[in-house]
Write a protein that binds this DNA or RNA. Sequence first.
DNA 1: GGACATTACGTGTTACGTAAAAATG
DNA 2: CATTTTTACGTAACACGTAATGTCC
Lengths: 296, 296
Amino acid sequence: MDAHLLRTFVTVARLGSFSAAAVELQYTQAAVSQQVAALESDLKVTLLRRRPVGPTEAGTRLLEHAIPILLRMDAARADVTRMTSPPAARLALALTPLAAATSPALTRLAELRARMPRLDVAVRVTGRDQVVEAAARGEADLGLTDGLVAPSDPLPLPVPLSAVGVAESLVTVIVPADHPLARSPAGVGLADLADARWIDAPRVAPSLDELRRTAGTDGYRPGFRYDGADTLTLLRLAAEGHGLTLLPELPGGAMAPSPGLAAIPVTTRLVHRVELIHGTLPADSPAATFAAMLTA
Amino acid sequence: MDAHLLRTFVTVARLGSFSAAAVELQYTQAAVSQQVAALESDLKVTLLRRRPVGPTEAGTRLLEHAIPILLRMDAARADVTRMTSPPAARLALALTPLAAATSPALTRLAELRARMPRLDVAVRVTGRDQVVEAAARGEADLGLTDGLVAPSDPLPLPVPLSAVGVAESLVTVIVPADHPLARSPAGVGLADLADARWIDAPRVAPSLDELRRTAGTDGYRPGFRYDGADTLTLLRLAAEGHGLTLLPELPGGAMAPSPGLAAIPVTTRLVHRVELIHGTLPADSPAATFAAMLTA
DNA sequence: GGACATTACGTGTTACGTAAAAATG
DNA sequence: CATTTTTACGTAACACGTAATGTCC
């Protein structure tokens, strides 16, 4: 069960094709086929159904392990390598849209740039998984993820990284202004909304899966799925009545471009938390400075 | 950064010797040396100091990743392999001493054996790490670990396994009967005990490290370390005045063999929890039956 | 029949063992 | 000086590429 066998297995499963995986991994199709065969014969289980290519039950089980294992191997390499390579005079920051909207990160970043005008800054806004990935791999010096959790609970992370909360917000349900709920400004409990129509927007808002786990129910059937990463679009979708969505309380004005929306406070004991995540930070690096500014 | 390079690196670090690692891994010393060299040249860092052999700082960092990675690879193999191999008609149980003492597991086990007289049962009592390891690797069908946590928190596990609580106990401080503390039967807070002399007995009782993390202080300097796994011996040590130790409230009579001890309730909001951990259980296996009996 | 995966086979690399050298305490 | 690690070198295994064969829409 060599690491690179796992890597090609995961790639084949992700792309649903041996040939596509071969292209991505710079192998020939034959090599990919042989590697998967080797893994299967090692474990004595069929991992992939062919034509169409997809994981078997055993394959699914293996994927659940293999993906975090590979991520952690990258994290290990990054962690160890950092000890040799000199601290770069740049700051690479990965964050989710809501981390950008509800944490003071971008404000602090402006302050940092005022203090260090020549600092090379790279900001990347993506989904939660990619942020964690980038922070683990060391592609980003710092990551800012967000999530919906019970107060005082940490965000669950697939890899162990230093994590510290930098912002907490109340949770609100976004509904069109003419929606019946809009007339209960006192707030609603999540349990009351299990049967409503939801927009599932895993890259922006807390995913419905997350919501189910947090609320402990199995309700929240999605009526609509939005795979983009843009918050404004999500607000537009909510305004058009495609369904409800859950967002942290946004700073004044953020919702202005999409009028006709109401944000109803959620009374369930739940907070939206933004956490700063990172591997080992070299002392005196811009990343360490910025982390200190955020947690101060 | 191949998996087996990590494995030999970890082994060398653990044994503090290239030659010893070679014996354990069935390689020649030369092969081990080459593998470590390969890993070091891949990562471009020295991982081990030689003579005496021990991890460098980078090596320590790598160990923190490599050990869980290897454990998880074993877990992955066990998880996948279980899907093929027929469910064994045996029950292998790994548990910690305190899990045995404070959970109804052994009672339930007797009931199970009454119902299935021909069932092959193997019970292994060891430290927490070994229990988790055995459950992850599939060497044990079921594991029972214990730990000290805030009420409602799950026990932290280095690998993701199904975990469900099966018993909770109050936490007590064990002191000699003539100790000043023995006169405060109303209970003491942990913070008041940060400066006392402690026995560190990581294989039996909650380790002092764990205690520090849970209490958030950095007190609890050990005066004495007990590396054994036997609870009675620990009680004897406490009776002899070697230091304080923390134990869950033990069922009546358990402390009788070591008279002269008092168990003072701890008033800090903390519980001792026993959790049942396991990988995927084949339906209708003895393990699944027993798990159901424990969680019912 | 065409796209895609598997099998067969030849080759170059690599990873190990043996054996000799170097280093360290 | 003895023990332990490193280096040198020969060999055998293996993993990949090329190319032919097989298989499923």
